[in-house]
Design a protein around this nucleic acid. Structure first.
Lengths: 241, 241
DNA sequence: TTCGCACCGGATGTATACAGAGCCCCCCAT
DNA sequence: ATGGGGGGCTCTGTATACATCCGGTGCGAA
């Protein structure tokens, strides 16, 4: 067991999140406090706290009068959410260009992009490293916008497992296709940073939107017949149809 | 007392929200469960539930290790939030244009706009009626996007008292200026709906963004020296400086 | 047969007692 | 004078008993 001195609430949170993300509690499932308490061997109080936080996270919905229901996501929700991330990242890029990012922030982002170049240079891609650096770049981009409000909303969207910038990277079986995709994505990263550096706000916004569009195509491919491996994809366990 | 068979949690929610919005609990205040429980004469359990929901609403932040803190908003946060509403409403308008709103929805929105015309026609404006119809139009716009994801995020942003479409309408003392402002806003409403009807998505998006910009100017005016009446404005009680 | 009423079971709502963690302050020792 | 340790205080975390609400179901009467 993972008892490492976590509070009961944290254990409940982890346990429930895992059950939802893995699909053990599919979308639409009504959650009953007593049942969960028995299942997780935790009293109702921390269960309620955990449910409340999961609602905040967007994984649960508060039912009509009372109670919680596992939120269910259709493919259209997934696509809309990724597009929305594009809109928000576009806004972040535009703000960064308009307000001017600090030289430090720009330099850091450039360093991240150089590291991604190195990862992509080799014959076979270290996917774990790419995912880490890609996430880092997107975090740095959000920070350059210098807007706590925007940061907050981006964090919310990104918390959904299928909307994060590095979602689905591990789930490709055709590595040559993926490699080409990543090279294109990296070119977009560079162009976004260029535009921000040159204070070209319109270009920065448009590029960031288009960059998310690539993620959208990727999901659509994975869910299409050609992708076909939908079952094995962890991040899609909570997508209904 | 307002005991109308509400649950204790609902009473706590209303009481706390009122205290925060009125400025009785200013931004940065650490909230202690026991103190609130004594103050509201409600036990800690419903207090905790209410705190959790207020965090979800965005009025509270979860403190470092534990506990809640009243979120504090600087003027820059207010401005960013209104701009973000513009970005989201722009996206909604674009989606509505791209995906095609139903004839029913378009007709309903047109009816709302005609009613606003009537309100603006008279010599003195019924502000309460304008606010209601303005809110209705923005709700109809959001619905035309046909995106549950976008709807959700718009609802979140709009829940903040200073970011709602009809915020600050009651707070003007120079009614002639306000009347001109509202006439411009109504022209934008009409243009947005035109653009959506004509499936001109780019125009629809740009117009909706600009429309929020007007709200932003309005806040900036109210907080400027000329506006000067900052103290009397309820929606601004939770804005720090 | 059908309507209505009352009971019952299961769910969340609420209060409260107790546990445990973190912090501050004071005191003591070096 | 300063640093470390201990103790107490305060706040949140947790369990649990009890309250309350709501829906279903069965029985009885018209």
């Amino acid at each position: 067991m993972a008892d490492e001195s976590l509070t009961q609430t944290q254990k409940a949170l982890l346990g429930l999140r895992q059950r939802i993300l893995s699909g053990a509690l599919p979308g639409g499932t009504r959650l009953y406090e007593v049942a969960l308490a028995e299942d997780l061997k935790i009293s109702r109080t921390p269960i309620r706290a955990a449910l409340s936080r999961l609602a905040e996270e967007g994984l649960l919905e508060r039912g009509a009068g009372a109670g919680f229901v596992v939120r269910s996501f259709a493919l259209s929700d997934v696509v809309d959410t990724i597009d929305l991330r594009g809109v928000l990242e576009g806004t972040a890029a535009r703000y960064a260009a308009e307000r001017g990012a600090s030289p430090d922030a720009l330099a850091q982002a450039r360093t991240t992009l150089r590291e991604i170049d190195l990862v992509l240079a080799g014959p076979s891609i270290n996917m774990e490293a790419y995912a880490r650096l890609n996430t880092a770049f997107h975090v740095q981009l959000a920070a350059m916008a210098q807007s706590a409000t925007l940061q907050r909303e981006l964090d919310r969207i990104t918390a959904l497992p299928f909307a994060a910038p590095s979602a689905f990277l591990e789930d490709h079986d055709r590595l040559d296709t993926l490699q080409r995709t990543l090279i294109v994505a990296q070119a977009q990263h560079c162009a976004i940073l260029d535009a921000i550096t040159a204070r070209e706000s319109g270009r920065a916004e448009a590029l960031a939107r288009e960059h998310a569009r690539a993620a959208r195509r990727n999901v659509e491919f994975l869910l299409s017949d050609e992708g076909s491996r939908r079952e094995g994809i962890a991040s899609l366990a909570l997508v209904a149809d």
